[in-house]
Design a protein around this nucleic acid. Structure first.
Lengths: 108, 108
DNA sequence: ATAAACTACCTTGCATTGCAAGGTATTAAA
DNA sequence: TTTAATACCTTGCAATGCAAGGTAGTTTAT
């Protein structure tokens, strides 16, 4: 039971929410998502992201299209479906309730 | 991939933090912790709490003592060790960083 | 007395999922 | 032609929340 492990667990639950957040305004390809999260100080690795994107796609929350890259292999651009947008909005509410609960417990 | 499941995942990561928060001022016994979290709108079940308390105790973050109950079987009161208090303070920082990251990503 | 209800502790097995490690392929530069 | 960079993806392990089930002491109702 290390701090690192616990920190990882805390990240874990909100990754899905944050990934959808990145794509809610504009489509993005996986490597780009990893970079965006890293800039927001949120670590995520490939082995986490690819299976997660597959799950979201299979659940009908994401769709994708291929596009040639100006340099390197083609990119797989993902974007939220209508259902994905609805799902994201529910997660926003969930996050706010969670933050509220934490606030209540840590300042009691 | 349901909302319920994702909500559960989001809770998951912060349960350890919240449980320590409940006990950081005064000792508490398991059933009491479940009630306290429920009042803060945070669900946790026995099958989650007992193994988690064992892990925290084995990691040296919690200690406990038995005490007779005014009604019913004896209660196992848990409290934070010094190391547990240090650990909690690190989790507070982790939580703040996480909330900051979510804020960055969702308002970008 | 006896049964039911309540409080409290605890374990087992399953399912989910982040992550480390390893793999494939395209393009460009040295 | 080798190296580096970019990009996609899979496999196996480990951690852990949860549903379900189990044990036992105390109190209350019959």
């Amino acid at each position: 039971m290390t701090i690192d492990n616990t920190q990882s667990q805390m990240r874990k639950g909100i990754l899905e929410f944050c990934i959808l957040a990145v794509m809610r305004e504009r489509e993005a390809y996986p490597s780009e998502i990893i970079t965006a999260l890293k800039e927001a100080q949120l670590q995520i690795l490939e082995g986490t992201l690819y299976p997660l994107l597959s799950r979201l796609k299979n659940a009908g929350l994401l769709s994708y299209r291929w596009e040639e890259s100006p340099s390197g292999p083609p990119r797989k651009y993902f974007s939220l479906t209508e259902e994905g947008h609805r799902f994201y909005q529910e997660l926003e509410i969930t996050w706010q309730q969670l933050a509220e609960a934490v606030n209540t417990l840590t300042t009691a």
